[in-house]
């Protein structure tokens, strides 16, 4: 299967704007950041969460706790997959009880990753609430899940691929839509 570039929907500047806006929305929604904690979902949710933490710190002058979640052991597709995903470490070095947890991921698609993340979080403690922030919402939900903060809504077809690149991992900040074409 070959991939053809179809469109660029976000560049470095618009990504920064979107994340800054989300930072403001998090403060507004939670009336401050006192009880807010951030949880980045591996892999690309982590650098996005770190940036949100930085922006929130600039605005509120307060460093919000940041944790890293690996959802591999909570996936619902392990039994079907031929390629076994590698397990990485979950690192949430603080108590989630009574906290407003903002989960951050790059793309919201079927909602299954978020379902797994919520199960994983509830095993770690009993948060006051869980909110979801995503850079891209591309639709096609398979579960009743929605995001509280969205960088950009990108209507896409199932045959397309939404590729998020972040500097920390991919040496560039951009979001592309790629089309799968039969050779």
């Amino acid at each position: 299967m070959a991939l053809k570039h179809k469109a660029t929907v976000m560049d470095e500047k618009t990504m920064q704007q979107a994340l800054r806006r989300i930072a403001h929305e998090i403060i507004e929604h939670n009336r401050g950041t006192e009880k807010v904690v951030l949880i980045g979902i591996r892999k690309r949710g982590v650098p996005l969460a770190e940036r949100l933490q930085e922006y929130l710190c600039e605005i509120e002058d307060f460093e919000i706790p940041l944790g890293i979640l690996d959802i591999t052991l909570y996936r619902d597709d392990l039994i079907q997959r031929q390629d076994q995903p590698e397990v990485h470490t979950t690192d949430v070095p603080f108590d989630l009880t009574d906290k407003h947890v903002v989960v951050i991921d790059d793309v919201l698609f079927t909602g299954r990753t978020v379902r797994a993340a919520m199960d994983a979080l509830i095993d770690l403690g009993r948060p006051a609430g869980i909110q979801l922030a995503v850079l891209i919402d591309r639709g096609h939900r398979e579960l009743p899940i929605r995001a509280d903060y969205v960088g950009k809504n990108v209507p896409s077809s199932r045959s397309e691929l939404v590729e998020v690149k972040v500097k920390e991992i991919d040496q560039a900040d951009r979001v592309d839509i790629l089309e799968k074409i039969a050779e």
Partner: peptide, 20 residues
């Protein structure tokens, strides 16, 4: 060994159980 390192974190949780 790498996988075991990720598993060790689960043993330090209050709820030591993953549904995998």
């Amino acid at each position: 060994l790498e996988t075991a390192r990720s598993m060790r974190e689960i043993m330090q949780r209050k709820i030591k159980k993953v549904p995998v």
